[in-house]
Nucleic acid binder design. Structure first.
Length: 269
DNA sequence: CATCGGACCTGTTAGC
DNA sequence: TGCTAACAGGTCCGAT
C-alpha cells in the first residue's frame, strides 16, 4: 500500500495523537509480522514518545530508551482508536497510550514490521538506505553518479532504496513519465541532464502527493479514516491501454523487476 | 560485486 | 453464481 507520501500522511496523522503521550501498554495479538516482535520492544512500555519520525518508508516512535520501528509493508495501516473499541480482523498490535486511546496496527498481508531500535543506535535495516528524496542529499548528480555502469533498468534503479528511498511502483512510473524517460532504459545509459530532470520530477511528484494525502487505490486510508486524492492525478500508473493524457497515444505495459510498469511510448524515450 | 527470482501473506478482481 | 488464477502500494535473502 504505502510509498513515501502515504507513510508521511500516516506520520502526520498520528503525530498529534501520540506525541508526548506515555505508552501504557503493548497488546500483541500474534507473535510476529514479517519478523518476530523482539523482546526488547517491551522497553517501549512506560516511556514517553518524544518524536514521531519518518525515515524512508519506516516510522519511528522515539523515546528516551530507544525507538519503536514500524514498517507498513504492502497492506499495513495505523489508526488512533478508543482502547475499548474491539479489534477487527488483522488488528495485530495496539500501542496503548495514557489517554484511553491506542495506536492500532492493522496489516492483512503481514509484510509489515514492528521492531526496536536502541537509543544511540541505528537499526541495521536503516543503515544501507539512500538519501531522502525531499532532503538535501538527493539530486540529479547523485542519480547520475550512482548509475554509472548499472545494467538494470532505470525504473528498477529508481526503486532501489539504496539509491533513493521512498519511491515505490506508483511514483517510479509517474516520475519517469514526468521526466520523459522510457522505464526500460538502462540506468547507466541515462544522461546527466536527464537525471537532473528525473530528480526534479521525483521531488515534485512526491511533495505534491503528500499535499493530496497520498494515493488511495483500494484501501489506503489515513489515520482519520480518509482516503488520499492523488489517484485522480495519476498519469500512467494503472492506465495500461488507455490514452496518454498528454498525447493520446495508447499507454503500454511491461513487467520490470517483477512489477507492473506502464509508460507512454511517445512521451517517454 | 551486481542482478535476478523466489519467498513471505491475504484479499480482491478478472476470466472462464 | 461459483471456482480459479492472477495480481496488488514492499523488500529481504539466497542463488547465479
Amino acid at each position: 500500500m504505502p510509498e513515501l507520501p502515504e507513510v508521511e500522511t500516516t506520520r502526520r496523522g498520528i503525530e498529534p495523537h501520540v506525541l508526548h503521550r506515555r505508552v501504557q501498554g503493548l497488546t500483541l495479538r500474534r507473535a510476529d509480522l514479517r519478523w518476530p516482535f523482539p523482546e526488547t520492544l517491551q522497553q517501549l512500555v512506560g516511556e514517553r514518545i518524544t518524536a514521531v519520525e519518518r525515515r524512508a518508508k519506516y516510522l519511528l516512535l522515539h523515546t528516551r530508551r530507544g525507538a519503536a520501528l514500524l514498517h507498513l509493508g504492502m497492506s499495513g495501516s495505523l489508526r488512533i482508536v478508543d482502547t475499548a473499541l474491539p479489534p477487527r480482523l488483522h488488528d495485530h498490535v495496539d500501542i496503548v497510550l495514557d489517554d484511553g486511546r491506542a495506536l492500532r496496527f492493522n496489516d492483512p498481508r503481514r509484510f509489515g514490521a514492528l521492531l526496536w531500535q536502541a537509543a544511540g543506535e541505528v537499526h541495521p535495516l536503516l543503515q544501507a538506505l539512500g538519501p531522502e528524496p525531499l532532503g538535501p542529499g538527493f539530486s540529479g548528480e547523485h542519480l547520475f553518479a550512482l548509475s554509472r555502469g548499472k545494467r538494470s533498468t532505470v525504473k528498477v534503479f529508481l526503486m532501489d532504496q539504496a539509491v533513493v528511498v521512498g519511491v515505490g511502483n506508483i511514483y517510479a512510473a509517474e516520475s519517469l513519465f514526468r521526466a520523459g524517460i522510457d522505464p526500460r532504459r538502462e540506468a547507466g545509459r541515462v544522461s546527466r541532464v536527464r537525471y537532473g530532470g528525473l530528480a526534479d520530477a521525483v521531488r515534485d511528484i512526491l511533495a505534491h502527493a503528500i499535499t493530496r494525502g497520498g494515493t488511495t487505490l483500494r484501501d489506503f486510508l489515513n489515520p482519520q479514516g480518509e482516503p488520499g486524492y492523488f489517484e485522480q492525478e495519476l498519469q500512467v500508473y494503472g492506465r495500461e491501454g488507455l490514452p496518454c493524457r498528454v498525447c493520446g497515444t495508447t499507454l503500454r505495459h511491461v513487467t520490470l523487476g517483477q512489477r507492473a510498469t506502464v509508460w507512454c511510448p511517445r512521451c517517454q524515450r
